[in-house]
Design a protein around this nucleic acid. Structure first.
Length: 636
RNA sequence: GCCGGAGUAACUCAGUUGGUAGAGUAGCUGAUUCGUAAUCAGCAAGUCGGCGGUUCGAGUCCGCUCUUCGGCUCCA
């Protein structure tokens, strides 16, 4: 009988009978492994346990503990859900059901939308089916056979998928009476689906195309075991507790109001102060790095937006107004004024690079369904800058921006990911310009030494971009910074500089933001810190609290002293018990509570209590001022 | 914009089969003067998101609309 030999991850080789499968290999290594195995990895491709091995293959056994396992578990759980749905709602058509970052989903075409009660029924049915330990078996069919197979079952979406695939053969996975088109791999049996939960129902367009039919999407999540599932669900609860919309109201930072308009935040004193602190920080950091602060108007003539291309490409997101029979567009971006500033005089190569920075408030008419607290609004302020430089300076400028982003994010304690987005279908500019710009960004990314991803066709209409997504403490990603290359607007506005050879040349423009939108960034900050801002950011750094009315006079004096020294302080001299006032300050997540009782009055001191409950030794007001100034200066 | 939930006092929420709206917190008033997460008592508070319809009667049923939540799509 012929033998094959395969290579294991530790470098050793193993001989097996010809036709042996991954499962056979696991069994030959040990009974424990055979029991734990859920799939295999052959030459870096994931395969089923039942997959036969070829001679010379490099094979690894995947168990629940393998990093690759989660995706397989989730994918198989999505099949389990589809099976449950088909059993409960036989008229439902199945479409696609992949594993995603947070779990999985499956889209169905059904006559009636699912209700929350349906979700419970489906989950219950899934548990039954999992208990039944149905084996998942793979079968290969020719495309023609598969089309007939699914057409006979009335699964027209599957037929469409196979036809679009254009492959000679496709694979089908069967479990009990349910069969699904799928590349796999899958768990050996539904018994491996041990810890799952359906989380939500949503509408989703077939193939993400809003012109096509709206399907019903059911989201769920799955893990290798119950403990991990519970940990995940706990994390979701934690995220809810940290929701910036909830904390924004509780900490009295901002609100939204029907009468003001959807997507327009109104900033209360503490929130506005927090913004101001961030904005002051930004101005300082930009001036340090050779940026010039500029300011443009809120509305500009519509003619100008036509010239820039915004009118053709971005009009549906803009607000317009007419005054004196003249049309104006409310700015959705800050670049036009910056270009006009550039054009206000003749520029020499010696002037470049010019870096115009503006905390520019823009309005964008986002579609009603996308608004989301501060993270998605219709009016927001960008920490926007436009760098105008020679083509030779472009690489260095982009690298400088990436370094700027790194330094700022480190101050807030954020990790971030970078993504390069290339030319979209709807765009302006020549192929050569796009290529040049894309290469400049790519070069800077490579040089940064950080990992990055590429999103084909996701660029802005005027140029490719690097998007920087930062991760909060719950590992969620938010786009904030972006660096966009633009060879097009300088052309449209005929921007020039006089080079050393006396010739007029075209500068390159880089649009970039560091925090992105102040609104969104604050939303992320609130969730990241769960409202407990570091001292340098806290709109209220301390609250001075009296024990009884007897200390008011002294406390008032200290309050004035600290406020005059620039400490952001509030007073709580109400006739309430100390515990009551501490509790309130604590719920407001105020960093320091300064306790003033008779002892402090006598000694001319205050007793600071940090919001974690720790009491510091009594200090004089001057000592506290020094302490706060020192701690704030380091941006902790 | 699309699909599906939701909208009741400032906030969080209860309100049976349609019969005239209730709790906790916050607020106000009074008492209490108190040392590290809630002192006690009393009072006041709602066009039940808005408009229209069905009905003797609508918070409850129907239609439209606004807002909001979860997604789709889009994006800082």
């Amino acid at each position: 009988m012929a033998e094959i030999s395969v290579q294991l991850p530790d470098g050793s080789t193993r001989k097996l009978a010809a036709g042996a499968t991954v499962a056979d290999l696991a069994a030959s290594i040990g009974a424990g492994l055979a029991k734990a195995a859920i799939a295999g990895k052959v030459n870096d491709a994931l395969v089923d346990l039942s997959s036969p091995l070829a001679d010379g293959a490099a094979v690894a056994i995947i168990t629940e503990k393998s990093p690759e396992a989660l995706e397989i578990i989730r994918h198989s759980t999505s099949h389990l859900m589809a099976q449950a749905v088909k059993e409960l709602f036989p008229q439902a058509q199945v479409t696609i059901g992949p594993a995603i970052d947070t779990g999985f989903y499956y889209d169905f075409d059904v006559d009636h939308p699912f209700t929350p009660e349906d979700l419970e029924k489906i989950e219950k049915k899934m548990q039954e089916l999992a208990k039944a330990a149905l084996p998942l078996t793979r079968k290969e069919l020719s495309s023609g056979e598969a089309v007939k197979f699914f057409r006979d079952m009335g699964e027209s979406y599957k037929v469409e998928l196979i036809e679009d695939l254009g492959a000679e053969t496709v694979s089908i996975y069967t479990q009990g009476g349910f069969a699904d088109l799928c590349r796999g791999p899958h768990l050996p049996s539904t018994a491996w689906c041990k810890a799952f939960k359906l989380t939500s129902i949503a509408g989703a367009y077939w193939r993400g195309d809003e012109k096509r039919k709206m399907l019903q999407r059911v989201y769920g999540t799955a893990f290798a075991d119950k403990k991990e599932l519970d940990a995940y669900l706990e994390r979701i609860e934690e995220a809810k507790r940290r929701d910036h919309r909830k904390l924004g109201r509780e900490l009295d930072l901002f609100s939204f109001n029907d009468e003001v308009g959807a997507g327009f935040a109104i900033w209360h004193p503490k929130g506005a102060l927090l913004r101001t602190i961030l904005e002051d920080f930004e101005r300082k950091e930009h001036l340090k790095r050779g940026y010039d602060i500029v300011v443009g108007p809120q509305i500009l003539k519509t003619d100008l937006w036509q010239r820039s291309g915004h009118y053709d490409n971005y009009r549906e997101n803009m607000y317009f107004t007419e005054v004196d029979e003249m049309s104006f567009g409310v700015k959705p971006m800050n670049c036009l004024a910056h270009m006009m500033i550039y054009k206000s005089q003749l520029r020499s190569y010696r002037d470049l690079p010019l870096r115009f920075f503006e905390l520019g408030t823009v309005h964008r008419h986002e579609r009603a369904g996308v608004l989301h607290g501060l993270l998605r609004v219709r009016c927001f302020t960008q920490d926007d800058a436009h760098i105008l430089c020679t083509p030779e300076q472009l690489d260095a400028e982009i690298k400088g921006v990436i370094a700027f982003v790194s330094e700022v994010m480190a101050k807030f304690g954020f990790e971030f990911d970078m993504e390069l987005s290339t030319r979209p279908e709807k765009s302006i500019g020549s192929d050569e310009d796009w290529e040049r710009a894309t290469n400049a960004l790519l070069g800077a990314l490579k040089d940064s030494g950080r990992p990055y991803e590429i999103n084909e066709g996701d660029g802005a209409f005027y140029g490719p971009k690097i998007d920087i997504k930062l991760r909060d403490c719950l590992d969620r990603k938010w786009q904030c910074a972006t660096i966009q290359c633009d060879f097009t607007l300088p052309e449209r506005f005929d921007l020039t500089y006089v080079d050393s050879d006396g010739e007029k040349k075209r500068p390159v423009m880089v649009h970039r933001v560091i925090l992105g939108s102040i609104e969104r960034f604050i939303g992320v900050l609130i969730e990241h810190f769960a409202g407990s801002f570091p001292l340098w950011l806290s709109p209220v750094q301390a609250v001075i609290v009296t024990v009884t009315d007897a200390q008011i006079e002294y406390a008032e004096k200290v309050y004035n002293e600290l406020r005059a020294a620039g400490i952001r302080i509030q007073k709580d001299f109400r006739n309430e018990k100390l515990g009551f006032k501490i509790r309130e300050a604590q719920l407001q997540k105020t960093p320091y509570m300064l306790i003033v009782g008779d002892k402090e009055v006598e000694s001319g001191r205050i007793t600071p209590r940090f919001r974690d409950g720790k009491n510091l030794d009594p200090v004089t007001p001057e000592e506290f001022i020094n302490f706060v100034q020192k701690e704030s200066a380091d941006y902790h």
